[in-house]
Design a protein around this nucleic acid. Structure first.
Length: 396
DNA sequence: TCACAACCTTG
DNA sequence: AAGGTTGTG
């Protein structure tokens, strides 16, 4: 049976490229609720479906490592495409061992075996990842700019580093976020998993777990979908999904969503809002996370509270419900404060507000024999093991 | 433009 | 209640 790839096992092919932690922190970026399809299948190893195939990712101090499954898929994908030269991508096994040993703290030393490293062209995988993580956007520089204009941001910026917007598939993003209304992240993840298992193309099976692609708009538009999804626990959202898919095909065509990438923000948002189950909040999520609208800023109940509590945002206070007008004003307030990448800054604050990451705000715990450069990671692992969960730290 | 209820489940 | 949307007054 095929198993999930593990970096230290020596049984898998891993490739990597330079990507410092200040630019990307996988645990936060994949776990902050912008995507619902990645799971931590081993310590620091994230497995999920992206671009029609299954990946496992992990990172060391300054590199991002990746493994993909079922390489036969890549043959079709490569056809007719020209990829940039591979240049300095290849590393020697010796260098890998040195680096991995340094980072992974193998006490035995020398027992660590790494997977095969081939010199063949990687089939565009590195480029796919660079696009998915939008690595051309200089996150470290943006953090400095946001911190210079906003001391609340500055307070958390040193802890919650590398929180990056993904460039997700628009179809997956739209239909996933229609599921988020009145819902928790943990439950959403289960729903999306069942949605893909029911309507998505099967890709492979790892350790007995089947992986599926996200369903196509066509699959979601079928008349039987609402009943199926209600059976899977989608509640009233089942109809929204089927109707939105139907409306896209009937009124625009399957390529319409992707085409919104080249349309101005407000226009794209208005277009999305014509779909059932899509209000301002969901539309902004889709704009920000899949349509290249970096200024789109989803205002949920969290951001509403943050705006009042931390920013004394006057338009946010004194109302019982988040009206369309206030929604707009809060977004404009943060866009003025943070600039054209306001949506990215928002996700850092959102991430820092999540219950599951509150432990990162605690003072570091010194572990015996632990170097300080791996402090934050060591701290997280240590506290995961000890199950520490202290009260949320709020700054006022 | 604002407020409120209803909507499906479950952690 | 939970990262909302829709319909009604």
């Amino acid at each position: 049976m095929t198993q999930h790839a593990v970096f230290s096992s020596g049984a898998n092919v891993w490739r990597s490229f330079c990507c410092p932690r200040s630019e990307l922190w996988l645990d936060l970026t994949l776990g902050c609720g912008q995507t619902f399809r990645w799971r931590e299948t081993a310590d620091g190893h994230w497995t999920g479906v992206m671009g029609g195939r299954v990946w496992t990712l992990m990172q060391t101090e300054d590199r991002l490592w990746y493994h993909t499954y079922g390489s036969q898929v890549s043959t079709a994908r490569q056809a007719g495409r020209k990829w940039p030269g591979e240049g300095e991508r290849l590393e020697t096994v010796k260098k890998l061992k040195t680096e991995a040993a340094a980072v992974k703290e193998e006490p035995e030393g020398g027992t660590l075996e790494l997977g095969e490293v081939t010199s063949q062209w990687d089939g565009g995988e590195e480029e796919t990842l660079r696009d998915y993580f939008q690595l051309k956007v200089p996150l470290g520089d943006l953090y400095k700019e946001w911190a210079s204009v906003d001391h609340h941001f500055k307070d958390i910026a040193n802890i919650f580093t590398g929180v990056r917007m993904l460039r997700q598939d628009p179809t997956e993003c739209l239909f996933s976020f229609i599921c988020t209304s009145n819902n928790h992240i943990s439950r959403i993840e289960g729903m999306i998993e069942r949605l893909c298992a029911k309507l998505g193309a099967p890709l492979c099976r790892l350790d007995g777990t089947p992986y599926h692609d996200f369903p196509t708009v066509h699959a979601l538009a079928d008349g039987s979908v609402e009943a199926s999804l209600r059976d899977l626990g989608f509640g009233y959202r089942a109809r929204f999904l089927q109707q939105s898919a139907r409306q896209i095909l009937d009124q625009h065509g399957a390529d319409w969503l992707g085409g919104l990438r080249s349309v101005p923000y407000e226009e794209a948002r208005s277009a999305l809002r014509t779909l059932p189950g899509v209000g301002f909040k969901v539309a902004d999520c889709v704009c920000l996370m899949s349509l290249d609208k970096s200024c789109a800023l989803p205002v949920d109940t969290h951001m509403w509270q943050i705006a009042q509590r931390d920013y004394r945002c006057t338009m946010a206070t004194g109302r019982k419900t988040l009206t369309d007008k206030v929604y707009q004003e809060i977004g404009d307030f943060f866009r003025k404060l943070w600039g054209p990448y306001a949506g990215w800054a928002h996700s850092v604050l959102f991430c820092a507000d999540l219950k599951k990451f509150q432990k990162l705000k605690e003072p570091p715990i010194k572990m015996e024999g632990e170097g300080d450069e791996k402090e934050s990671i060591g701290k997280m692992k240590a506290e995961k093991k000890h199950g520490k969960a202290r009260a949320k730290v709020c700054k006022t």
